[in-house]
Amino acid sequence: MNRYFKTMRLFWTTSLAAEMEYRTNFLISSFTSLGNLAGSIFLIHLIFQRVPEIEGWSFDQSLLVMGFFTMLGGVANTVLRVNLSRIVQHVREGTMDFILLKPIDSQFHLSVRRFISWGIPDIAYGILIVLYAGMRLGLGPLEYAAALLPLAAGLVTLYSLWFMLGATSIWFVKVHNVTYVLSNLLAAGRFPIALYPVAMRLFFTFIVPVAFLTTVPAQAMLGRADWLWLIGAAVFAAVAFLASRMFWHFALRHYTSASS
């Protein structure tokens, strides 16, 4: 296990070092992240300008959801997108061979190989918004702690779905287009799931489980989460993660390796 942590640390430090070759990216993205944040808050303000609450969600509570969304977006940019979009490239260029021949779990290798600093500002802004909204709602440390389990479950779920999608590139080389659709669908996590019409709510709960990513952590913080939901989120995450591992092993059996 220790070796995996050590390797991951090496992966990330070398990744950061490689990125330093293009460091303006970080400046630009921290600026655009800030603009995005201002725009998003402005948008929530517009929605709630004439009404104190919609479907049981107030401005501050929606801000909480937005904070989680920004945070997850940051995580997605920092490790998920950059690694999982590479799977396609590894398959197409045949460099997957090198990864499969390393005596280290290939799913682990593929998932944490790269680390991109551009997402860090979003993670920081996200945490700040959650803290700010939490302060306005008068939440204490216990409430913050309550969000941790569903947040972790949400992250694992997101990772597992994304990885499985990436793994299909063993068969379909043009998967990145599907990934593009998925990451756009995730934008629905910006708002509490209750703000959507019923059909969309169902879609974003059961088909693309955006609800678990941002709304459920916020609900947990607000003390409104059913135990059933929390357990559901944890079970769902565990199942999704196991499924991703099984799916990867299944996919590898079909890996024919790009010829020469």
């Binding site: 929605i47 009404v51 934008a187 910006r190 703000l195 959507y196 019409p197």
Partner: peptide, 10 residues
């Protein structure tokens, strides 16, 4: 369409 959903509810 995501925004459509939110604005319709609002």
């Amino acid at each position: 369409f995501i925004l459509m959903g939110v604005w319709m509810t609002a």
